[in-house]
Design a protein around this nucleic acid. Structure first.
Length: 590
RNA sequence: CGGGGUGUAGCGCAGUUGGAAGCGCGCUGCGUUUGGGACGCAGAGGUCGGCGGUUCAAGUCCGCCCACCCCGACCA
């Protein structure tokens, strides 16, 4: 490609709204342009990188038996009503009516459409297992798009769907994806880890997320360096240290004016926060048959810990959970800031499983300005549910080995879910098994955001001058810089020749044939960040030589013009081999 | 949805007390220059986010709205 013809330009300064480095560089280098919050156009350079990422995905998913299809972006709402997700999902779903006033949905994901295909196409166990996938646009009207391409509303995702006759089949396809995903990210030179995750709106049995670790990530992960345990904070388990046993003391009411927080309380009474009980109030929307009911949830955890909303949501089997308002709190007889599980009415009391082992805690008195000391679970109050509802944090003890957990941030670039029969059951995806029994198809779903993946590669590979693409994802292999000098057509001739020869040999070349000063051309080359830079200049031409430089190195090498082809092809092959060597077998971590 | 911020030329920004819309970069033309964002001359480019109000007069003051960014809530 001649740069003089390229549809995009570099920007000397990035628009001020771009803060994250991948966003700034992708804008400045002319890869992307923003249309609205979380909605982007992908210009030719980005498109080429995305094509490479998507082709890597195709190769790896085809290798585990995937068959590519394309499913629609616009769906009739009826399909989503069948699985209830039309009702369960809120404003994040794009909805509109067609000209006949029918409800329509913009695809957030494609389980419904896959299931519809499956129930129409799959009749017999002889047609299973299958794996289908597509690379398609999704719309999720996220409340807060941010960080350029990291979190957008319109995005492209590769989503595959596995169809099996039995659970062993699902296990196999899940494990195949587990490895294929590592292969994909390794081939993009993007370091990731797999962590166990919550199943969220997808429903299902088991899920892993592939996380690229970076401080700009919005998910918090807990890692154990000792045994390798890793999990999203939403579900991370940890060992809770049982406090020393104490004899239960009689409850006593004490005056604690202006003490609405745990920290105030601990200071005033001169006790550690672990000797207090913290009360958190939520309103949960809980499905009951087709209907849902709103239930007031009173969660009790130790004062030194935080309620984990995902765990709490799962504990009460809620579809939605939100903080309760002050009025709602008073209705159940509690006093905000001085709340106590003692003497409540009409509330679903959920107690963290460490509380029953923690004697003589300080809790609110449900009366402004007073707390109760020596409150004991079982004697003074009881719970509807006792289970783990607190978050692991930096320094928590690993559930497996007792090592100290480390907290890191990450961006989710892929996920794999064992859906089981969640969609087969609601949409009637059944087949006739060997034994003549009608059975539900067992499904899995597996996603990778290709744009997010590209952004993460950009986030990982850059320096103060610009991007530094890995060879496998770079829009072109070679940046050919032409510096023609004064009144000399010779350099132009040589440049054109090298460009043509390399292209014919299958090397992808971006040829800077613009009438710009050398400074501009070199700066743009660094910014765009192709792996190899060749410079053809007036003064080099006289020696029949060309300058060769890697984007990732400072070193410049002068090579004979006749050696360019061999050198370039050798170095590309070497870089490709280097990437390939990163593809290794990963142990499956359940 | 809550908190904070920004909106003036393609990008980055200035605009004082309310009194003729500016600067740098980029863009167009001509000439010079040519190994790390060159130089000269001449140009083009504006719904000052929108609507309403106050005023002789509004980019500037007041009200409402919109968009975008950041933090939080939420979320595959």
């Amino acid at each position: 490609m001649r740069m003089s013809q390229l549809f995009s330009q570099t920007l000397r300064e990035a628009p001020s709204e771009a803060e994250v480095v991948s966003h700034r560089l992708l804008l400045r280098a002319g890869f992307i342009r923003q249309l609205a919050a979380g909605i982007f156009s992908y210009l030719p350079l980005a498109r080429r990188s995305l094509n490479k990422i998507e082709n890597i995905i195709r190769e790896e998913i085809n290798a585990i038996g995937g068959q590519e299809v394309t499913m629609p972006v616009v769906h009739p709402a009826d399909l989503w009503k069948e699985t209830q997700r039309w009702y369960q999902i809120g404003s994040e779903m794009g909805r509109f009516k067609d000209k006949n006033n029918r409800d329509m949905v913009l695809a957030m994901t494609h389980e419904e459409v896959v299931s519809d295909l499956v129930r129409k196409e799959i009749r017999s166990y002889r047609q299973l297992p299958r794996l289908i996938y597509h690379i398609q646009t999704k719309w999720r009207d996220d409340p807060r798009p941010r960080a350029g391409l990291i979190r957008v509303r319109e995005f492209t995702m590769k989503d595959s769907y596995s169809l099996d006759a039995d659970w062993e089949g699902l296990d196999l396809q899940y494990r195949n994806h587990y490895q294929a995903y590592f292969n994909i990210f390794n081939r993009c030179d993007l370091p990731v880890i797999a962590v166990k995750s919550d199943v969220g709106m997808m429903g299902g049995k088991m899920a892993h997320e592939y996380m690229y670790l970076t401080p700009i990530g919005e998910d918090t992960l807990l890692l154990c360096d000792q045994c390798g345990y890793s999990a999203n904070r939403q579900i991370a388990l940890f060992r809770k240290v049982k406090p020393p046993e104490e004899k239960m003391l009689p409850v006593e009411k004490v005056s604690t004016p202006n003490c609405k927080t745990i920290a105030d309380l601990a200071t005033l009474l001169d006790i550690p926060e672990s000797k207090t009980a913290k009360a958190v109030f939520m309103m949960a929307t809980i499905p009951q048959g087709v209907e849902t009911v709103d239930k007031f949830v009173f969660a009790v955890v130790r004062g030194d810990m935080e309620v984990n909303e995902t765990k709490l949501t799962n504990a009460v089997k809620a579809k939605e959970l939100r903080p309760a308002t002050e009025e709602e709190i008073r209705v159940v007889g509690a006093e905000p800031g001085y709340a106590s599980p003692v003497g409540l009415k009409d509330a679903l009391v959920v107690v963290d499983d460490l509380i029953p082992q923690s004697p003589n805690l300080v809790a609110g008195a449900n009366e402004e300005g007073y707390h109760l000391i020596n409150v004991n679970f079982g004697r003074d109050y009881s719970a509807d549910i006792v289970t783990d509802i607190v978050s692991a944090q930096e320094g928590s003890l690993c559930i497996h080995c007792g090592g100290s957990l480390r907290e890191v941030r990450g961006v989710e670039v892929g996920n794999i879910f064992k859906l089981g029969t969640r969609y087969s059951d609601s949409m009637g995806c059944t087949f006739l098994d060997k034994d003549g029994q009608e059975k539900p198809v067992i499904m899995g779903s597996y996603g990778i955001g290709s744009g997010r993946c590209m952004a993460c590669v950009a986030e990982e590979h850059n320096d103060e001058l610009g991007l530094k693409w890995p060879i496998s994802v770079a829009p072109y292999h070679v940046h050919l810089v032409l510096l023609p000098g004064k009144n000399d057509k010779k350099a132009v001739q040589i440049g054109d020749e090298i460009f043509t020869d390399l292209c014919q040999a299958g090397v992808e070349v971006l040829y800077d044939d613009r009438e710009e000063s050398p400074g501009v051309k070199f700066t743009d080359a660094d910014l765009i960040g192709l792996p190899i830079r060749l410079t053809v200049s007036d003064r080099m031409v006289k020696q029949k030589s060309v300058e060769f430089k890697f984007r990732r190195s400072e070193d410049k090498e002068i090579i004979a013009k006749d050696d360019v082809m061999t050198k370039v092809k050798t170095e590309i092959a070497r870089m490709e081999a280097e990437i390939k060597s990163k593809v290794v077998e990963m142990p499956f971590k359940d």
